[in-house]
């Protein structure tokens, strides 16, 4: 069986859930081979986690060049691996980084790229959800080595133990790839809530919060959910842009999406329309969000959310 390269996202010795999803998809296509950059001392821990989800081989590359510069060096390493190992495909997560590596790799290998896949078949046909979730497109790469980026939370990660043999690799990184220098990095304060794009439940607030996200956050915490925000709320400065759900923010597809005080403009729908179950609370019974919901409450979110939080807490 041919190999499928999986670009692994990891931090502090922990592998991202989205990477386990990629490995789950890769197993349908061929033999998963994970590529891990700069795991350093935690390499064996990272490799063990990757092996648990089916990585036969774990290729590790340690070089400060991968963190000192934006993705171009990582793309060069992957290009050299595509050249030497002729994989059936390269899978990456649909993050800024994943998409950028994919774009550069497609030029280097003159290959087609498909982004934001929500599913991949064994014959490399990718499914995408486009136009604000209005259409489903199935397509494939017809030239070169298929490069596919996959949206987080698209498939359920399934464990399947494999060898996870660690092999160190390296590549000659050109000077041209060392041009976008990362001068400094400031970590953002952690909220303790799940990652928005990976969360099983998302509770979002919009204009109707009037800037008070308290009830939204409290409900989210009772559900173990991530907190999202509409563009109106972010533009008003009420919530950070990193939490924006919509066309110009994150696309989420959780098991449950709760929209509180969000009218449901196309900008927002684009980011949440494919959620499995959608509920909404809005004062305006004509808000377009109600066209999408499985359950809707016409009412004041400052009454409904605290009551719901209390009911959930007593339900536990």
């Amino acid at each position: 069986m041919s190999e499928v390269l999986v670009y692994a996202d990891h931090a502090n010795g922990k592998v991202a859930k989205s990477t386990f999803e990629l490995l789950t998809l890769a197993r349908r296509i061929g033999t998963p081979v994970a590529v891990v950059l700069n795991a350093g001392d935690s390499a064996s821990q990272v490799a063990a986690a990757l092996a648990e989800y089916g990585a036969e081989t774990v290729l590790t590359a340690d070089d400060s060049v991968y963190s000192d510069y934006l993705v171009a060096p990582a793309a060069e390493l992957l290009a050299s691996l595509v050249d030497s190992r002729s994989p059936a495909a390269v899978l990456l997560s649909s993050s800024f980084e994943g998409k950028e590596i994919a774009g550069r790799l497609s030029v280097k290998t003159d290959s087609g790229v498909i982004t934001d896949a929500v599913d991949i078949d064994s014959d490399l046909v990718a499914t995408q959800s486009v136009f604000a979730g209005g259409y489903t497109v199935r397509g494939k790469v017809t030239q070169g080595t298929p490069i596919l980026t996959v949206k987080p939370n698209s498939v359920a990660p399934e464990a399947s133990a494999a060898a996870g043999a660690v092999e160190a690799v390296s590549a000659e990184i050109s000077d041209a790839a060392k041009t976008a220098k990362v001068v400094s990095t400031e970590d953002k304060p952690q909220t303790g809530r799940p990652n928005l794009t990976e969360a099983a439940i998302v509770v979002s607030g919009g204009r109707g919060t009037g800037g008070d996200f308290g009830p939204v956050e409290t409900l989210a915490d009772s559900l173990g959910a991530a907190v999202g925000a509409s563009r109106a709320a972010v533009d008003a400065g009420w919530y950070p842009h990193a939490n924006q759900v919509g066309q110009t923010g994150k696309t989420v597809s959780p098991q449950l999406y709760v929209a509180a005080g969000i009218s449901g403009a196309i900008q927002h729908r684009a980011g949440m329309q494919t959620s499995k179950t959608i509920v909404a609370i809005n004062k305006d019974d004509e808000a377009p969000i109600f066209e999408l919901v499985d359950f809707g409450v016409v009412g004041d979110l400052f009454q409904v959310l605290p009551q719901a939080t209390e009911a959930i807490n007593s339900h536990k």
Binding site: I281, D285, G299, Q303, Q307, A311, H315
Partner: peptide
């Protein structure tokens, strides 16, 4: 979907 108007028990019905 089902849409209800809050009559004081909207949160409970939601849950």
């Amino acid at each position: 979907g089902e849409i209800i108007t809050d009559d004081g028990d909207g949160g409970t019905k939601l849950v």
